[in-house]
Amino acid sequence: MRFLIIIPAHNEEQNLSFTLDSLQQQSSKDFKVVVVNDGSIDSTPDVVRKYTAADPRFETINLQKSEHQPGSKVVHAFKKGLQTQSIEEFEIICKFDADIILPQNYLEAVEKAFISNPDYGLVGGLLYVEKEGNWVYEGNSNKHHVRGPMKAYRRECFVQMGGLRETLGWDNIDSILLEHLGWKEIVLPKLHVKLIKVKGADYTIRPADYYGRYFYFLGLNRFLAYIASSKEAMKSKSPSFFFDIVKSYESCKSKKLELKISKEEQKAVNDQRWRMLKKKWLKM
């Protein structure tokens, strides 16, 4: 199976070489990498050039600087890279970040998982971050969810679900939609991916605004959005946090901001969230 790997990169001169080196060192060699330079003002283009000049499997495109919006910016860059390729030539479509280090057998293990299990639609490893000199499990999500920095999709699944959505929450929307279509999302726990840079450090949006917008663009109805908001408020032990999230959600709703998912897909999202609620909270 052949891999198409799209890597959006914005000001990643300190990290990108680690990612590209780990790809060159993969035991599986049948891949193409497209690095999308998303308006970098540092030496990111120079870093990429060292690889494209020496290895024909590496390509790059350059975009103009765009506004940094959580979720939508990175998917926009990903799509620009994808448009330069004929995806029919590949069996596996990957969206990787520019600040990860893959184990040497990463692509090989993902390929074997897809070959052995025709119902697998999305496969990935687990993220690890460095703390006090040790690499430890990131722990920001459950161990059954493939995180945004290391997504690998079976092409048929990717096409069937309409690709990635240019919106906040895209890396949860994909999981829900592929499950709705009968595909499986699988985490291979022995594949440890090192994350060099902590995500969210460069977001300027306030946490309450983030969650309110996230729940809105995820397509949650008011009831489920309020339940999700109360959960985040309980985590932070701040009742006011609940009202701030709700205020952000209702602001999006009153403005009727465009959603990137259809009515049918919104129903699939809410149905999935309702099943999770009944299973975890109501024990049904």
Score class of each variant (00 low, 15 high):
267 K>D: 10
230 S>I: 11
224 L>T: 03
142 N>T: 12
87 I>A: 11
23 L>H: 02
32 K>V: 13
72 S>Q: 11
157 C>I: 10
159 V>W: 03
150 M>V: 15
109 A>N: 11
243 F>Q: 12
233 A>N: 02
100 I>Y: 07
3 F>R: 06
176 I>T: 03
157 C>M: 11
133 G>K: 04
112 K>Q: 13
233 A>Q: 01
268 A>G: 11
6 I>A: 01
270 N>D: 08
64 Q>P: 14
125 G>R: 00
97 D>S: 05
240 S>K: 14
248 S>C: 01
166 E>T: 03
103 P>H: 03
120 Y>D: 04
79 K>E: 10
128 Y>T: 04
149 P>G: 04
104 Q>C: 09
23 L>I: 12
182 G>E: 04
164 L>N: 00
55 D>C: 07
164 L>Q: 00
13 E>D: 13
81 G>I: 02
35 V>G: 00
13 E>C: 09
283 K>Y: 08
189 P>H: 07
74 V>R: 03
114 F>V: 09
245 I>V: 07
171 D>Q: 00
197 K>I: 12
121 G>R: 00
252 C>Q: 09
280 K>L: 10
84 T>D: 11
95 K>H: 13
219 G>T: 05
13 E>K: 08
181 L>P: 00
44 T>R: 00
247 K>N: 13
210 Y>D: 08
167 T>K: 02
125 G>N: 06
100 I>G: 05
93 I>N: 07
272 Q>S: 14
184 K>Y: 01
270 N>T: 08
39 G>F: 05
279 K>N: 13
94 C>L: 11
12 E>M: 06
237 K>M: 15
106 Y>W: 12
185 E>L: 07
151 K>P: 03
191 L>F: 04
183 W>C: 07
76 H>E: 15
113 A>H: 10
274 W>L: 14
98 A>H: 06
83 Q>C: 11
76 H>T: 15
175 S>D: 11
106 Y>C: 02
191 L>K: 01
245 I>T: 01
78 F>H: 09
36 V>N: 03
126 L>S: 05
34 V>E: 02
63 L>M: 11
94 C>I: 09
215 F>K: 01
251 S>D: 13
108 E>G: 08
244 D>L: 05
57 R>P: 09
148 G>I: 02
65 K>N: 13
213 R>A: 03
21 D>H: 13
246 V>M: 05
258 E>V: 15
48 V>S: 02
20 L>M: 06
251 S>Y: 09
167 T>N: 05
15 N>H: 14
161 M>H: 02
178 L>I: 07
153 Y>I: 05
232 E>W: 08
157 C>Q: 07
131 K>Q: 09
119 D>Y: 11
156 E>L: 04
160 Q>I: 01
178 L>F: 04
210 Y>F: 14
48 V>I: 09
82 L>N: 08
127 L>W: 05
172 N>L: 10
